[in-house]
Design a protein around this nucleic acid. Structure first.
Lengths: 239, 239
DNA sequence: ACGTTGAGATTGCCG
DNA sequence: CGGCAATGTCAACGT
C-alpha cells in the first residue's frame, strides 16, 4: 500500500498518530533523568517518533545510536516548544524546541521481520548434530543439560566414557570460561558424572580466555562455522 | 545557522554529501553479510544515512534500534535501485529499492555532545573522596590500584591498618563479585598487603551477588548516589 | 515479574 | 591496533 506523505504545520500535528513514523528536524536542548542524568546543549538534531511510541534524538554522528531516547511503553506530552516523554519508572526525556526546521509523518506499516543465520544457537545446533567436530569420539548425551544454575550447552561422553561438558560461544571470552567452570563445579557433585571434563568451544578464543581455561583445566577448541555449515548442508544433500 | 531543507528528486541526489543527513522512505529488501547473515523481506522502511557515513534501516518498531545497519568507516555505492554498503572487514549491507516514497537531506552541523552524570566513574570519584561512606575508618591508599589482571577501583586501609580492596559498580551483579575475587587472589600474593579484605560496593546489589560475595568472604555495601552527590556538593559550598 | 544470556552488541579507555 | 570494562546496554526466553 502506497501512502502519500502528509505535511502539516507543527501546530496541526497531533501528539502522535498511531501507525505513523514522525520525523522532526529541530534546534533543541534535551535532558534525560532516570538511570543517570544527561544533558544536550542547544543544537540542530533529528527527532524520531516511531509508531511503537519510542522517541529518539539523533545527531549526525554516533552511527546508528541516538544521543538520547525513550523506549516504549512511554507517554509523550507535547506543547508547542516543549516535549516531555516519561515512563512508569519515573524516567523522563525533556526536549525544549527552539525552532522546528521541518517535519514529516509517514506510514510504514508492519515489518515482516528479520531472519538471521549464524548466531550462537545455530552453532550449537550444528555441533549437537556433529560433536565429533569438537573432539574425536564424542557422543552427545543431551543438549541444554540442566543444572541448578542453568543449562550446559552440550553434555557428551568421550571415547573413554567420561562425561564432557561443552560451552559454546560465538566468540570465546573470559566470562564464558568462568561460566563453564561454574557448571563443572556443579556437575562434579553428581557421582554418575564425576569427574567431568570441560571443553570451551568458539569460532575464536581470546588469549586471556585460553590462559584462564588452562588454569581451570578446561580444554579450548576453535571451530569454523562456515565449514560446519557446509558439512551439514552436504549431509542434507546426500539424504 | 538556519538551513532551509533541500528537496531533490532521487536521481539528483549524490551518493552522499558530506555534512548532510539523508532520510529515505522506501519499499525495499535488505541483506547483511558479515558477522552473521540477515535478511529483510520487501517492506516499507526508513533509511538513514548520517554525515559520519553510517547507514541504518529502521522499521516503525524496535524502539531506537535499526533492523540493519553499517557503522563507519564504510563505503556506499548507490545505483538507482540498489545500494551496497561495505567496509574493510568484508561486511556488506545490500539494499534493493523497489520504490522510493520520499527523501530529504538536511544539514545538522556538529553536535556539542552529551554530558552524563551518575555513571560508574562518577560514583568512584565520590567514594574516592569519601571512603568512610563505605565503612568507618577507611582511608584511601590509591584509586585504580594496578594488578597484573587489571586495576582495582580503590585500595584502602581500614581502622586496624588492614588492606581493603573495593570494587565499585552502579549495579551489583555476580560478575562484579567474581572480578573482585580475582583481584583479591592477586593482591593476597603481595606480602605487604596480605590478608586483603574485599568490599563490593554498588547502588543496588542483587541477592545472587550477595550470596556469592558471602561465600567468598566479601562484604557488600549499598550506597546512595544522590546522598553522596549531595554531601559532595555541600562540601563544595562550604569551601 | 524476575533472572539469565546473547548480541553483527557499541563505545571509550589505555597500553 | 588490541584487549578490557561500562553501557540509560537491549531483547528474548525460561521460571
Amino acid at each position: 500500500m502506497l501512502v502519500v506523505p502528509r505535511w502539516r504545520r507543527p501546530a496541526q500535528l497531533s501528539c502522535h498518530d498511531v501507525g505513523l513514523m514522525r520525523l522532526v528536524v529541530a534546534t533543541c536542548t534535551v535532558d534525560y533523568t532516570g538511570r543517570l542524568s544527561a544533558h544536550l546543549p542547544m543544537a540542530t538534531r533529528l527527532i524520531m517518533v516511531k509508531a511503537d511510541g519510542s522517541v529518539s534524538v539523533h545527531s549526525d554522528g554516533r552511527a546508528y545510536k541516538p544521543l538520547n531516547w525513550m523506549t516504549p511503553p512511554c507517554q509523550l506530552r507535547a506543547d508547542a516548544d516543549r516535549w516531555v516523554v516519561s515512563n512508569s519508572k519515573g524516567e523522563t526525556l525533556t526536549i525544549e524546541l527552539a525552532e522546528v526546521l521541518w517535519e514529516v509523518e509517514h506510514e510504514l506499516g508492519a515489518d515482516p521481520g528479520l531472519r538471521k543465520d549464524g548466531v550462537e544457537a545455530d552453532l550449537q545446533e550444528l555441533l549437537a548434530a556433529r560433536p565429533e567436530a569438537v573432539a574425536e569420539g564424542l557422543r552427545l548425551v543431551r543438549r541444554e543439560y540442566p543444572t541448578d544454575i542453568g543449562p550446559v550447552d552440550l553434555l557428551c561422553r568421550d571415547a573413554e566414557g567420561r562425561a564432557v561438558a561443552i560451552e559454546i560461544k560465538r566468540r570465546g571470552e573470559i566470562d564464558g570460561v568462568e561460566q563453564l567452570a561454574r557448571y563443572l563445579e556443579r556437575l562434579d557433585l553428581d557421582g554418575r558424572l564425576r569427574p567431568v571434563r570441560g571443553i570451551f568451544v568458539a569460532q575464536q578464543i581470546k588469549p586471556q580466555a585460553q590462559v584462564l581455561a588452562a588454569a581451570r583445566g578446561i580444554d579450548c577448541v576453535e571451530v569454523d562455522y562456515d565449514a560446519l555449515r557446509g558439512a551439514a548442508d552436504e549431509r542434507l544433500t546426500l539424504f
